[in-house]
Nucleic acid binder design. Structure first.
Lengths: 225, 225
DNA sequence: AATTTAATGTGTTGTAAGTACATATTTGTA
DNA sequence: TACAAATATGTACTTACAACACATTAAATT
């Protein structure tokens, strides 16, 4: 149902040549997830001839009767079935030749979702999770968009408690630290990390322990509401 | 000459109704300046009937054959005659009803210029400098755009040496501090301020003094290249 | 020539945060 | 019962930040 609303490339071409002053506007969502100790991003295979086999972000043209922000939520909902998700505008990319079929400027948003917790309804079988560090070339300027969003995320995770969107309800500090390390791409000192997190007052001690781990279990926490 | 290229509002209306899928794209420049101990912004009076007498930012529609960033430079050049100026993209505003004549999304940029140093060629006599703190209501959603850009500027001036674009070639630390205070809207301790600036290694001691001041002259500095 | 005015230039001390680093504890497993 | 693996915790050192006071300089005034 939702899929029907996503425009085909041929239509973009037609639209963007209707008038000399006609510029198409799209949104692209960089959807980050974390699973299996890996920091991932949700991508699809491009349906353009020019970019056969290349990966691209999830996006769509903005409709004339919807807000720019709403368009990004619609794309996210259409592609993942998810509804109540944090989305943040990052940057607008507007180079003349960024799209081979015509003039399309795009506004990039990023989002963080918990891969296991939400049951994703991925209807399109060309949509898959990819390890962020493995991404090399992408369709369009999407690699640049991905890099920009990743940098924005890195700048924000130490200042704002956005990261908890990626975690299960209950989590250990170990898991939280591993996630920070995966996103930032560095190793952190455990003692200093815990001190810093506790100082920020972002988590609540649940007074529960991990179970079924082959080592001393850690305490569980949840994100402070 | 340049003025000729700026579109009239009537044209926006025509363009944006050509096609259901047609969304116009514009840029708006928030041009900050500093003069006479006042932190200012360059604005014009709106030429729309709906916003008679209200102030608006300097903007224009993006042309199909120019990059989004280029459009912001073009607007700045057309309005001020300035050529080599720092411009930074801040945010894109895309609410459906933000423009009364049709669907227009706009990308906001901010810029910092030295009012005295550059000889502005302001051709349009409806364009004037306004004290930032005096701005109340504006046309469109331009007050929100202005506030967003001001907040972005405030977040950046302590981290990046952008502020020197507002100052003359040679300046005293007193002037620099007054500028920080004007932008941030707070009083700063002189000793701590100087320590912080020196630590950042942003300025070079010119070994010259102020002249013709009715008190002990201060040392002059320039921004490190 | 002496005094006043107004701003410059500098240093110390306490507090908070950041970094580096080592040992004892708990659980499951061999 | 010993081992493996990860948890939990504290201290010393360094660096940044905030509060705060006094001597110095040049021009203007008496």
């Amino acid at each position: 149902m939702e899929e029907r609303m996503l425009l085909k490339t041929a239509e973009i071409e037609k639209i963007s040549h209707l008038d000399y002053f006609n510029i198409a506007v799209s949104v692209d969502c960089v959807i980050f997830g974390y699973d299996d100790d890996q920091f991932k991003v949700l991508l699809m295979e491009s349906d353009l001839e020019e970019f056969k086999g290349r990966l691209s972000l999830l996006g769509d043209l903005v409709r004339p009767d919807e807000d720019l922000d709403s368009a990004s939520y619609r794309v996210l909902k259409a592609r993942t079935g998810l509804d109540d998700v944090y989305l943040q505008q990052v940057h607008t990319f507007g180079a003349v030749n960024r799209h081979p079929s015509g003039r399309v400027i795009t506004t990039a948003y990023y989002s963080l979702i918990n891969i296991n917790h939400h049951q994703l309804k991925i209807t399109d079988n060309q949509v898959h999770w990819h390890n962020v560090n493995d991404i090399r070339r992408m369709a369009f300027d999407h690699k640049e968009i991905l890099d920009t969003c990743l940098q924005t995320l890195r700048d924000q995770i130490m200042e704002h408690p956005v990261i908890f969107n990626l975690l299960p309800e209950k989590f250990s500090l170990r898991l939280l630290q591993e996630l920070y390390e995966a996103i930032l791409g560095v190793k952190l000192d455990r003692r200093n990390f815990r001190k810093k997190i506790m100082l920020k007052d972002w988590v609540v001690d649940l007074d529960e322990m991990e179970t079924e781990v082959p080592h001393r279990p850690g305490k569980l926490y949840r994100a402070k509401t």
